[in-house]
Write a protein that binds this DNA or RNA. Structure first.
Length: 781
DNA sequence: TACCGAGTATTTTTT
DNA sequence: ATACTCGGTA
């Protein structure tokens, strides 16, 4: 036991050894929060305060869950199998797989990822003849997910106008469609298991009795539903050990609710709020910059990072004339670092938005420096992989219409849009899956559809006793996917990915502890679509059958899934790596969001310009600026030894040159920690005396916004821009248009007769208007 | 059915 | 600039 606790600092030690009651650990960047989390688990188990099966560890990403599990295994010689450690979604999937009947789901229910969900919604709208212009599928998707994350079913959503009432109706129709097809989306995983535990008292008590210790990572990122879910599992007696950092909350835009931290403190009567403020990552100047910057935020729980490392190098600041020059400069700095022996892997270029990577990439290519861009398509999201998965889904669940539609005519087999429309009409008329509706289609269309169905049934029969990798391999051939990509000019990569899918299946079997020769599916489903009800009724047998086939000692939880169902869940829940090219010693390029949780010896934060970072859109959002500042805080705290901040006076964006001012964040950093590589030009001097720094209201952006940006006199558009400004047009300005009504200027561009203003109208959204034509009136306030 | 051109929309993203 | 979607035509 002493070993376990050795090398912990006093705060870490206090956190790890807290008594069994709910606690909030405010863990700053680089303060060893993961270490505390896993040491806490190990300490609980070693001291026999908890058994492995009493532990519930929740994270947001699969990566974090995996790391927790691996580090735990190195720390403790025990087997971690009894523990439930995983993502919210992964754990909910487990719960629903185990209790699919109580949850009202078919055993082979499948998980829709975001793209699947969207195509499901599009199909729904088409079937109902809904005007997609008026009710854009994306908006409906957002509406549905939002409602679900507030734990609201259609009958609970408040709709005050006809428009929203229609949305609610469509939400209800979408739910019915998912239920009919035996699929759940991401939010549904959470909501279903939340409702299951709410409704089923015995089940709830069972799990409450089991999980005496609940530990949550990245607590600041939880949404309302996740918080409610945790609360439900905790019940009256279990404790929650919540670790998080309100200063690193950067996901409000997708529903994260930092307020959960305060609610948690209050509702769980947290007596111990422990702050981990000792930072083991960054040198002093870097930390100072981070501390001073974040102190500008008002809604904080409060925390200051400190380090034993010296001040180290100052934060270097560079002002470039253009984005190209900025990229050129950073490549030179990078060269110097590499010459000093810094590994390329230890150098990162961070930016606010993905579009900014391009100019940096160009410079790196020209300089011959290897680099890696994060954020592309992930493995399981590639079209060829999704096609193969759709076949797999159809084999496992014939009622999955999303999968059906995806591959019914891929590779092409002469089934056109007309036939499919006819088919979906029939399916709707008979209220049955597309696969079953094929029987009602007559004529030539009917026979091609019949052949497709026959193909699926044949593959299902042929693979009945196959293990998962063999099944996947066989399917890739039998479906015609392999032949299709062989004939395609650019198909080589896709073929390789399909081979990789076989490997992924193989790896999945090993990782999950399935016996290698266990069949991928256990129950015969050869009767096709009509077999679905029988499958749903066969639950207990199925579990026994899989248990029998699974590795000795495998948990029921894993065994409650067939290898195929498990693999399909895995594919939806863990989309895989999203790096462009893996391997090799390469410089890392990514958005700041993607960099959260990572650290690098040297970090370049680029594009620090008003409008870009803080992003102009954040002006319109509640607490938008504070979130941008937290993002900046995250960016700064990624750096261990060297931090470079840069901005450019002009930048190519959306095919247009924009002139920006340096980010306000420079004014919030301690001058003493900075070293300006270019002369620092005072805001006042640049702006012809305009250096108002009033509070930020609805026009905070206007102070440093695009239109007000000082432009070197030599640049051609300067005079015109000024003229526009003289006319009173500036970003943030409220305007009125006779047709579109009230709005706010969000951008200005062009010159003379071409001068245009971008206006965000309250009722009509964003529009570009030519100033010479549009009758825009200024609204004074 | 495949390809082309017009139109459009470009903050951040995990599950 | 660019990437993606959609609808029309070969």
């Amino acid at each position: 036991m002493p070993d376990l606790l050795a090398h912990l600092n006093p705060e870490q030690l206090a956190a790890v050894t807290l008594p069994n009651e709910s606690a909030l650990i405010l863990a700053g960047a680089g303060s060893g929060k993961t270490r505390v989390l896993i040491t806490r688990i190990a300490w609980l188990i070693e001291g026999r305060q908890a058994s492995p099966s009493g532990i519930l560890g929740v994270t947001f990403t699969n990566k974090a869950a995996k790391e927790m599990l691996t580090r735990l295994t190195t720390l403790l010689p025990i087997n971690t199998r009894g523990m439930w450690i995983g993502t919210f979604h992964g754990l909910c999937n487990r719960l629903l797989r185990t209790h699919y009947r109580e949850a009202g789901l078919p055993q082979a229910f499948q998980i829709l990822d975001t793209a699947d969900q969207l195509s499901s919604i599009k199909r729904l709208l088409k079937g109902l003849n809904v005007d997609e212009e008026k009710y854009p599928p994306k908006n409906l998707q957002y509406f549905i997910n939002n409602a679900k994350e507030e734990a609201l079913r259609p009958d609970q959503v408040e709709a005050n106008d006809a428009f929203n009432r229609r949305f609610v109706e469509l939400y209800a129709a979408y739910e019915a469609q998912c239920q009919r097809e035996g699929v759940v989306d991401f939010a549904e995983l959470l909501l279903r298991s939340y409702e299951l535990l709410t409704r089923d008292v015995a089940l709830r008590q069972h799990y409450q009795a089991r999980f005496s210790h609940i530990l949550v990572d990245e607590f600041q990122d939880t949404n309302r539903l996740q918080y409610a879910w945790l609360k439900l599992l905790a019940g009256a007696h279990n404790s929650i050990f919540a670790v998080g950092d309100d200063d690193q909350s950067i996901y409000a835009f997708r529903g994260a609710n930092v307020g959960n931290m305060r609610d948690f403190e209050r509702e769980f009567h947290v007596r111990h709020l422990i702050k981990l403020e000792q930072n083991y990552r960054s040198h002093g100047h870097i930390l100072d910059a981070a501390n001073i910057l974040i102190a500008n935020n008002s809604k904080r729980l409060g925390k200051d990072l400190r380090t034993d490392a010296g001040y180290g190098e100052p934060v270097r600041v560079y002002e470039a004339a253009t984005d190209t020059q900025e990229a050129g400069w950073l490549v030179e700095e990078m060269r110097a670092l590499i010459n000093q022996g810094v590994s390329r892997l230890d150098i990162a270029v961070l930016y606010r938005s993905n579009a900014q990577s391009r100019v940096v990439e160009h410079a790196l290519v020209a300089a011959g420096i290897a680099y890696k861009v994060y954020g592309g398509l992930r493995f399981f999201e590639r079209q060829e992989v999704k096609h193969a998965l759709a076949y797999l889904r159809l084999i496992d669940n014939p009622t999955d219409d999303t999968a059906f539609m995806r591959v019914v005519n891929f590779p092409t087999r002469g089934i056109g849009a007309r036939s499919l429309e006819q088919l979906s009409d029939l399916a709707r008329a008979h209220n049955c899956p597309l696969a079953s509706a094929v029987a009602y289609v007559t004529g030539k269309a009917g026979s091609s559809l019949g052949q497709f169905l026959h193909l699926i049934e044949r593959i299902r029969a042929e693979t009945r006793l196959m293990n998962l990798p063999d099944l996947v391999r066989h399917l890739v051939q039998a479906s015609g996917l392999a032949a299709h990509y062989q004939n395609e000019r650019e198909g080589q990569d896709r073929l390789e990915n399909l081979e990789e899918l076989v490997n992924a299946a193989s790896a999945f079997i090993s990782e999950e502890g399935f016996r290698r020769d266990a069949p991928a599916r256990v129950l015969p489903m050869d009767a096709g679509a009509t077999a679905a009800p029988a499958v749903a009724d066969a639950g207990a047998d199925m579990v026994d059958a899989v248990l029998d086939a699974a590795a000795p000692g495998a948990t029921t939880l894993v065994a409650a899934m067939t290898p195929l169902a498990g693999f399909l869940s895995h594919a939806s829940l863990e989309a895989g790596d999203n790096q462009a090219q893996a391997g090799q010693d390469a410089v890392q390029l990514m958005t700041i969001h993607a960099a959260k949780g990572l650290e690098f010896t040297a970090v370049f934060v680029t594009g620090l310009e008003e409008g870009l970072f803080p992003h102009e859109n954040s002006a319109a959002e509640a607490d938008g600026l504070e979130e941008e500042r937290r993002l900046m805080y995250v960016a700064i705290t990624r750096a261990k030894e060297r931090l470079y901040l840069s901005f450019a006076q002009s930048r190519m964006l959306h095919g247009q040159t924009r002139y920006n001012v340096r980010s306000r964040f420079f004014d919030e950093l301690p001058e003493g920690a900075l070293k300006w590589l270019t002369a620092k030009v005072e805001a006042g001097a640049r702006w012809g005396g305009r250096s108002d720094n009033a509070g930020w209201g609805k026009d905070w952006f206007a102070r440093g916004g695009v239109a007000a940006a000082p432009v070197p006199a030599a640049l051609p558009s300067y005079v015109e821009r000024n003229r526009a400004a003289e006319a009173g047009f500036r970003v943030g300005q409220a305007v009125f248009h006779t047709k579109f009504g009230e709005g706010t200027v969000t951008g200005l561009e062009g010159s003379g007769a071409d001068a245009r203003a971008q206006v965000n109208f309250k009722r009509h959204g964003q529009k570009w208007l030519a100033l010479s034509v549009a009758k825009l009136q200024l609204i004074e306030d």
